[in-house]
C-alpha cells in the first residue's frame, strides 16, 4: 500500500512539474532573473502548490497514524534554524541558479529523454552520496 501511494504521488508530482514548466531550466532561470526579463510563473507554481497542500497538511498533522498505510506519521518536528540549514540552503540556491534545476525536475527531465541533464543529475547523486558518507549514521533523516 505504501509503495502504491508513493508511486501515484510521484506520478502526480511529476505531471505537475512538467505542466508547470519547472522541468525547463530556462524557465526557472527566467524566474530567478529579477534584473532582466522576469517570468513570474514560478511564483504561481509555489502559490498553487501551497494552497493545495495546506488543507491536506492540516488534516495530516491532526493524525497519529497515516490514513491509508496506518503507519505512525513521519512528519518533521524540528524548528531548529542552524548553520547546516542555512549554509546547505545557500549552496543549494547557488546550484539552482547556476543550472536552473532542482532535484525533482532533474529526474523528470531525464525521464523526458533530455540527455543534457545527465551530468547535473549524476553530480547531484554523487553529492547526496558524499553527504551520506560524511555524516554516516549520525544523519537522522
Amino acid at each position: 500500500m505504501r509503495n502504491l501511494i508513493a508511486a501515484l504521488a510521484g506520478l502526480i508530482f511529476g505531471l505537475g512539474l512538467i505542466l508547470s514548466g519547472m522541468s525547463n531550466p530556462a524557465k526557472v532561470q527566467g524566474f530567478l532573473d529579477l534584473a532582466g526579463q522576469w517570468d513570474p510563473s514560478l511564483a504561481l507554481v509555489m502559490a498553487g502548490a501551497i494552497a493545495a497542500a495546506t488543507p491536506l497538511f492540516m488534516l495530516a498533522r491532526r493524525r497519529e497514524r497515516a490514513l491509508l498505510t496506518h503507519e505512525p506519521m513521519s512528519l518533521p518536528t524540528s524548528q531548529r534554524i542552524d548553520r547546516q540549514l542555512l549554509l546547505g540552503s545557500v549552496a543549494f540556491g547557488i546550484g539552482w541558479g547556476l543550472a536552473g534545476i532542482c532535484p525533482g525536475p532533474a529526474i523528470v527531465a531525464a525521464g523526458l529523454g533530455k540527455v543534457a541533464i545527465l551530468p547535473f543529475l549524476l553530480a547531484m547523486l554523487v553529492g547526496m552520496a558524499l553527504h551520506a558518507r560524511m555524516t554516516g549514521s549520525r544523519s537522522p533523516q
Partner: peptide, 20 residues
C-alpha cells in the same frame, strides 16, 4: 503554472495524509 502547482501540492498533501 497554477495548475501544475496545484498538482504538486495535491501530491505532497495527499502523500502526507495517506502515507504520513
Amino acid at each position: 503554472a497554477l495548475a501544475g502547482g496545484v498538482l504538486i501540492g495535491l501530491s505532497a498533501g495527499l502523500f502526507a495524509l495517506l502515507a504520513g
